[in-house]
Amino acid sequence: MFTPDELTHLKQHVNHYPEPRAGAIYCLYAVQDKVGHINDKGIEIVTELTGLSKTQQEELISFYTLLRRRPIGRNVLRICDSISCHVMGSKAILDAAIKQTGVPIGEISKDGSVTVLPSICLGLCNKAPAALLNEMDEVENLNVHSINEYLNKLSEKPHDLNNKGSGSNIIATSGRENNS
């Protein structure tokens, strides 16, 4: 899953904390960035790196919202349903997204392009209703029309829009593996 350089980087990251488990979130992120979710193989690697058992990792994954154990679509779109977006009509946006993807919230859309999730406040309250694509790209001032358009656009793109690995050290892995 990881190149030797990436593994060295992860090891260094884990070792720079007083206790190895502090590096767990970072390593789990790295796995997720590679695979799209945290798979069993990734769990094994993180066990090697941090000493945390599968259960102990799942304790973390099931607690933290941005970590996921199950596969998602090529993209994950988090639509804010907290108060500022709610007063601006986020419920209609979520309903529209459910209708458009044809699957319930949290499931992979039929074409595999996206998983839509409700989200807590994204800090985009001034551009409500808002959403966040792949934890990176803001989608702002949504309305029922624009969410449909946006989802269509995702559907048409053959490759995912994931660009997390670009140009930074925060969870520096070289980009997502093709997991089709």
């Binding site: 904390y17 488990r21 979130i25 992120y29 941090t50 945390l52 973390l60 933290y64 941005l66 970590l67």
Partner: peptide
Amino acid sequence: DVHLSAGRYICGEETALLNAIEGYRA
């Protein structure tokens, strides 16, 4: 150290935040 959290409102509580940095449930 720039620490990227993995989500959840409760991490903003100062002691929960410490647990989050240490790699525990927050």
